[in-house]
Amino acid sequence: MADRTQRSIVIAAPARQVMSVIADLASYPEWVSAAKSVEVLETGPDGRARTARFVLDAGVVKDTYVLSYTWQPDDMAVSWTLESGELQKAQEGRYELVEQPGGGTEVRYELTVDLTIPMIGMFKRKAEKVITDTALKELKKRVEG
């Protein structure tokens, strides 16, 4: 597995509100520019997605893949792993929420992606940085409205 990319952003909202946006996978196409469709395939007893199929179109990168989710009981983190993908052979990710003094929430995003096609490490790290930065900015915009 490749190096992990880590980014964070502070969102002016309580952690519970941030996690509710993260957990609403079906609405991702409304606010995640690269997500063309998201279908929750299986839910757990808590109503949260256990598996979901994504159709991604980020210009030169197009992929259809299935992720498996693990939600922390305290609602402060979620992690996922790739079950299957066309372009990806592995993906591990995690959102961790840290409440800030004054009511905001720091969102920490970790992502590791391994592709079926060879890619120079420098370009791969740049792509992961763009993906994580964009995801955090779009999440902030959606939560803060």
Rank of each mutant, 00 (worst) to 15 (best):
L41A: 05
V60G: 08
T81C: 15
S20T: 06
E39N: 03
S33V: 03
D63G: 14
V40M: 03
R53V: 00
P45Y: 10
E86K: 11
Q91R: 15
P29N: 15
K62T: 01
R7E: 12
L25H: 07
T105K: 03
A13M: 07
E96Q: 07
R94M: 14
S33E: 05
D46M: 08
D75H: 13
S8K: 15
I11K: 05
K89A: 12
A13H: 08
E42N: 03
P73M: 05
K62I: 00
G47T: 13
Q6A: 14
T5E: 12
D63L: 12
K36N: 03
R4N: 13
E86G: 12
R94A: 14
G102H: 11
G44I: 13
A23P: 11
V21R: 10
V98F: 07
S27A: 15
A58I: 00
L56F: 10
M76D: 06
A13S: 14
V98A: 10
P73Q: 02
V78K: 03
G103H: 05
P14A: 05
D63I: 10
P101C: 09
A13D: 09
L56W: 07
R53Q: 12
L25C: 06
Y95H: 07
V60M: 04
E92S: 12
E42G: 02
V61N: 12
L82I: 02
V60I: 09
S8H: 15
V10E: 09
G93S: 09
L97H: 02
S84M: 09
G44W: 13
V38N: 10
Y65P: 00
V55S: 08
G59V: 07
T81I: 14
Y28I: 01
A58E: 03
E30G: 10
V66Q: 01
P14W: 00
D46W: 07
W31G: 08
Q17V: 04
Q88C: 10
Q91I: 15
G93M: 06
Q17S: 11
D57M: 02
R16I: 12
L41W: 08
